[in-house]
């Protein structure tokens, strides 16, 4: 019979889990952990992390802390509106990822920034 368990157990062995189940992984996280929904092939499981993986940023909400995706043109960010590293083909300027740099600045492909 499928098990719904709390804390760390077989099938959802993660330190940050508060409750978890074999099929969904973490269902809720301990305080200060972020819930990240990870897709592995056809599966999608909950994972509790102290910090979100690259490409995501942590959002603290009353009901739960979650990892939220950065904008599509952004590889890593503080939040939805402040990128720290752009995807290839985009250039960082004032926290935004631009395809073209403003006048007076040029594109640096190595840093992916307007310099």
């Amino acid at each position: 019979q499928h098990k719904q368990l709390s804390g760390v157990t077989s099938g959802c062995q993660q330190g940050g889990c508060l409750t978890c189940s074999d099929y969904n992984g973490c269902l809720s996280c301990k305080p200060r952990f972020f819930m990240h929904l990870e897709r592995i092939g056809m599966k999608q499981i909950g994972v509790c992390m102290t910090s979100c993986p690259p490409g995501f940023f942590g959002t603290r909400l009353p009901e739960r802390n979650t990892c939220t995706k950065c904008r599509s043109e952004c590889d890593s960010c503080f939040n939805k509106n402040f990128c720290t590293r752009c995807r290839a083909g985009f250039y960082l300027h004032l926290g935004k990822c631009l395809e073209n740099c403003p006048d007076g600045l040029i594109r640096s492909d190595t840093q992916r920034e307007c310099v």
């Binding site: 099929y23 269902l27 819930m35 999608q44 909950g46 995706k69």
Partner: peptide
């Protein structure tokens, strides 16, 4: 279609994937 699992929390207002 192809079978694809979604975590229950992925169907909330603030979730996007």
């Amino acid at each position: 279609g192809k079978l694809m699992q979604y975590h229950p929390l992925s169907l909330c207002n603030n979730s996007e994937d």
